[in-house]
């Protein structure tokens, strides 16, 4: 009984250490953090705490075009494809045509993103530098 408790505690300590190590490995890497209002913040990861509050440096804010602007863009794309048949994929219906729009962005500098407003965190890595070896896996994934 005593043994299991110690080993559980040890296991927890190990997990905690690994977690801290993992978080430290992310420091100064570029993260894309999406918030509940579907904005995305892109900046260098500087600091976090148990609530996943994130400090990002040199941050840019990216915002999806508003619904209205998207509708306009879609209409414009549709009009363009109707005119120039060369670019439209044969057989694709105009209605579900995909089109590209630039997200609007602006520079914000140093920001804190509170954990409660975060819906998604993405890590950016260069393809050339991605590690192949074993990576940290969170306890929930185990």
């Amino acid at each position: 009984m005593e043994d299991t408790r110690t080993s559980l505690k040890e296991a927890r300590d190990v997990a905690r250490e690994e977690a801290a190590e993992y978080l430290s490995s992310l420091l100064n890497k570029n993260l894309r953090v999406t918030t509940t209002d579907s904005r995305m913040f892109w900046g260098a990861f500087k600091c976090t705490d148990p609530e996943s509050n994130l400090v990002l440096q040199h941050t840019y804010e990216y915002r999806h075009p508003s619904m209205q602007k998207q509708a306009e863009g879609s209409a414009a794309a549709a009009a363009a494809s109707a005119g120039a048949t060369l670019t439209s994929t044969p057989g694709s219906a105009v209605a579900n045509q995909t089109f590209k729009m630039d997200m609007t962005s602006r520079y914000l500098g140093l920001v804190v993103v509170p954990g409660e407003h975060i819906v998604k965190i993405e890590l950016e890595e260069f393809v050339s530098q991605m590690k192949k070896g074993p990576q940290y896996r969170s306890p929930t994934e185990l």
């Binding site: 609530e51 965190i121 993405e122 890590l123 969170s138």
Partner: peptide, 15 residues
């Protein structure tokens, strides 16, 4: 870009 949302939150929660 890799989604690390859950991994990150789980790791942070152990702090």
């Amino acid at each position: 870009a890799t989604d690390i949302t859950r991994k990150f939150a789980a790791a942070a929660a152990t702090l």
